[in-house]
Design a protein around this nucleic acid. Sequence first.
DNA 1: CATGAATGAGGGTTCATTCAT
DNA 2: TATGAATGAACCCTCATTCAT
Lengths: 172, 172, 172, 172
Amino acid sequence: MEDIAKAAGLSKAAIYLYFPSKMALLEALIEAKVAPLANQAQSLAAAGAADPLMALRMLATAAAYRAGDAKVFAVPRLVIGISGRFPEIADYYRTNVVEKARAALEALIDAGKAKGVIRDIDSKAVTRAFIGPLFFEAMWTHVLRGESAFADPHTLIEQHFDILLNGLEQRA
Amino acid sequence: MEDIAKAAGLSKAAIYLYFPSKMALLEALIEAKVAPLANQAQSLAAAGAADPLMALRMLATAAAYRAGDAKVFAVPRLVIGISGRFPEIADYYRTNVVEKARAALEALIDAGKAKGVIRDIDSKAVTRAFIGPLFFEAMWTHVLRGESAFADPHTLIEQHFDILLNGLEQRA
Amino acid sequence: MEDIAKAAGLSKAAIYLYFPSKMALLEALIEAKVAPLANQAQSLAAAGAADPLMALRMLATAAAYRAGDAKVFAVPRLVIGISGRFPEIADYYRTNVVEKARAALEALIDAGKAKGVIRDIDSKAVTRAFIGPLFFEAMWTHVLRGESAFADPHTLIEQHFDILLNGLEQRA
Amino acid sequence: MEDIAKAAGLSKAAIYLYFPSKMALLEALIEAKVAPLANQAQSLAAAGAADPLMALRMLATAAAYRAGDAKVFAVPRLVIGISGRFPEIADYYRTNVVEKARAALEALIDAGKAKGVIRDIDSKAVTRAFIGPLFFEAMWTHVLRGESAFADPHTLIEQHFDILLNGLEQRA
DNA sequence: CATGAATGAGGGTTCATTCAT
DNA sequence: TATGAATGAACCCTCATTCAT
């Protein structure tokens, strides 16, 4: 809280004029920092049915840029950290961010299936394969302090989509 | 520490009879709960060159069973939670678990490339695609308390490998 | 820290609003309670060259009044008490109090030698003979709770200087 | 206590078979490590009336060797450290060590006065001048970690007695 | 006589939160 | 609206002491 106050140019006490508790602030932080990505997914799901693969790629690109930003990823990181003591905040995150994003992704995937460009695969499994590698890279970068692929987001996305769309297997 | 002590039926002080510090305790926890998976990866990398895809599938299966166990996943979760205050523990985790596992995976992938069953793709990107979805599912299950795909590990692995090997794209 | 907090009418945590650590607090305490005496010694060393014996007597008098005050002597007492666990605080005390005082004393002694009023004796030994008895009396008074000579500082100083200047020996 | 147990080749618990508490052990330690010096003073007081100055010199020499030993000085140091919380131990030390030693010293001094080799000076002041410099040197050495005069005990004692007997003053 | 295992109380320190101003 | 001052509870850790064996 002290750091946040300092960053905001306020006293610690003043924060409580705007947010009743740290948890409330964290919810607002989720709204400000990560919910926009979920909303962007919803918008793209609504608008991107014409070219679902392109929409997915745009989404992945946006996600990569956001997840690569330490200040953004600090939010899910915090949520994970306190989820043991404050499960409600995790529920809030699931409901207001991840489930929204997954629903939007599934809509795009379904659109892709309808257009015949995506195989008939379980949608939940696809969103997992879509989000997982980016999420893991964020952990690797920000938590484990490994050498980050976010340094070159373009390549990261290219590789991600190459594997996601074409798979690993060598084909004749 | 208090929680751990309580769970062990001990006083806080008694923990220090077994571990000299919180960091040592966490290292021991890592060694006991998650390092075995990394070691298994190393064994399979050494032994599984004959059929790399099978070795990878076995590894994913083992990982799925472990990651589905709340007591096992509690360890990386803890590491993430305290990585802000104890960055060394994150470094330890990266060095002794994730880097070891990634190295083993890359060896298997390279074997697959050599045998001509895996395309020529960046190995780091492949390990990301291999680990990420399972890791994300663990987060979804244990942290976000979403409906868990670990309830049916067989299907989870089938879906994971189907996407990983064949990709999403509909092909003629 | 708890005792200090209680004495100040504060909670333990509140101390950290004023001092960043226990060591900083102790340093401030030293600066406030005992360093002034060392500084006074330096001043007298600079100004008292005309009559070094008088300057030494003034210094001893000031020291006696200070050492007789339980609140002042509490500081070196504390330093001794925690010097085992916090050797740095002992080093701080040596550097910023005792060495400064000894240097000032040695300067006065050298001035005395130059003026021909003090014999040619090892200066370190002289400072020892100057400080030691007063320090011992403080220990006797505050730690051992013996009957205190600080009750009559004038006599204490007279006796101290009589012995210090003239020695014990009966002379013809 | 742990260190003491280790040094004694015992378990921590075994110490309590020999001493009912840390304070009792500390009293025994006083008896073993510093009381002998007080006893030696008493013996010399009884036997040394023929040459009191020589007896005092022998006593100072014995004291210097003991005070220079960190293991011996650890005892008064400990007493000082805990005297705030356990005033009884300080009283014990005063009664069983310091008062005994001062009484013996005063007897020797009185003998010196009777023989006409020591001036008529307040005895308490003399014991202060006798003990103080050696005590201060011990503090300087063991607590403040300054360069120790105990490294050359002979010189230390010579200087001490030169000042003590002859005083600082230049005489014609 | 001796110990391994355990603990309650305390150590210094941090942090989310409160409240008088 | 904003703060400086303060705190209770928690943090990791140490230590004198106990007790079943």
